[in-house]
């Protein structure tokens, strides 16, 4: 097979994407500095919010989701997905700074596969995180009326959100190559979370914040997760959430591909 054919052969590139996704996942799971934001931090915040602000459940208009932790775990899934996505961007920047990226570029690999490998690995990470968070929340009293299907939908939405965050972070890494810039993005995750109804119902937000939440695409994802988990259309729409998450994932991945091409043109 010629080299050009190799780069265009879908089966070969599928193997490349799988191998790169596997590598990305291994790195994520072996590096403490990635495990902490991806797993520990969301669980700590879940514990703090579930125990410290559970009185919010008594507010008039607060939806009934059984245990309070069952309501806020949807926000934890999104938080984990966003933080996992940023660590994927940090990994990309580290590969660029450390020279591993050159090794990838010197191989007969389609440039889009390099992006898809990173995004795909993070999507799997997002799914793993979601399973862990849902299991922990379940252990502390959350119940999922949506059953297995609802949980699977929630995991899928979280996975797509992680892919979206990874695409965006990878695009930044590819354009700037800056590890430090990516590390500075962590605080913005919390801005995104609190401008989406991650831990509080949209209807009970202050009007100004509600206006922002109305246009924040993550709103539809987090509400979709919540609705899927509790099988309650009043909490959101899983299909709208799926469309929003898929749209974000596709858009962010396209942005990363563009950033990769721009990087290649500039070398």
């Amino acid at each position: 097979m010629s080299s050009a054919a190799l780069e265009r052969d879908p089966a070969v590139q599928a193997r490349v994407v799988t191998a790169l996704a596997g590598r990305g996942l291994r790195i994520q799971m072996r590096r403490a500095q990635f495990l902490i934001p991806a797993f520990l931090l969301p669980l700590v915040l879940l514990a703090v919010i579930a125990s410290g602000t559970s009185a919010a459940q008594n507010l008039r208009g607060f939806p009934d989701t059984g245990a309070y932790i069952g309501f806020v775990v949807a926000g934890t899934l999104i938080q984990g997905a966003l933080l996992g996505g940023i660590t994927a961007g940090i990994s990309t920047a580290a590969d660029i700074e450390g020279g591993f990226f050159d090794r990838l570029l010197a191989a007969p690999v389609h440039r889009v596969s390099l992006v898809l490998g990173r995004v795909g690995g993070t999507a799997v990470l997002g799914a793993l995180q979601a399973c862990v968070f849902l299991a922990v929340a379940f252990a502390f009293g959350a119940r999922y009326e949506g059953g297995v299907v609802g949980v699977a939908e929630a995991v899928l939405l979280a996975s797509l959100a992680a892919a979206a965050a990874a695409g965006l972070a990878a695009a930044i890494a590819l354009r700037t190559g800056s590890l430090q810039l990516l590390q500075n993005l962590f605080p913005f995750v919390f801005v995104l979370l609190f401008t989406a109804p991650a831990f509080f119902p949209r209807a009970l937000l202050q009007p100004e914040l509600q206006a922002v939440a109305d246009v924040n695409p993550l709103t539809f994802v987090v509400e979709g997760i919540r609705a899927a988990l509790h099988d309650d259309p009043a909490l959101g729409d899983p299909l709208t959430g799926l469309l929003a998450a898929a749209g974000l994932a596709i858009g962010a991945t396209a942005l990363a591909v563009w950033a990769m091409r721009a990087r290649m043109r500039s070398t």
Binding site: M1, R15, T18, G22, R26, R31, R103
Partner: peptide, 23 residues
Amino acid sequence: QEAALDPLMTGRELLQLQGALHG
């Protein structure tokens, strides 16, 4: 230069990754 190799991966894993990159 500098053998840019990921310190968190094993030698065997890196060789298999490289094999996959080459189809």
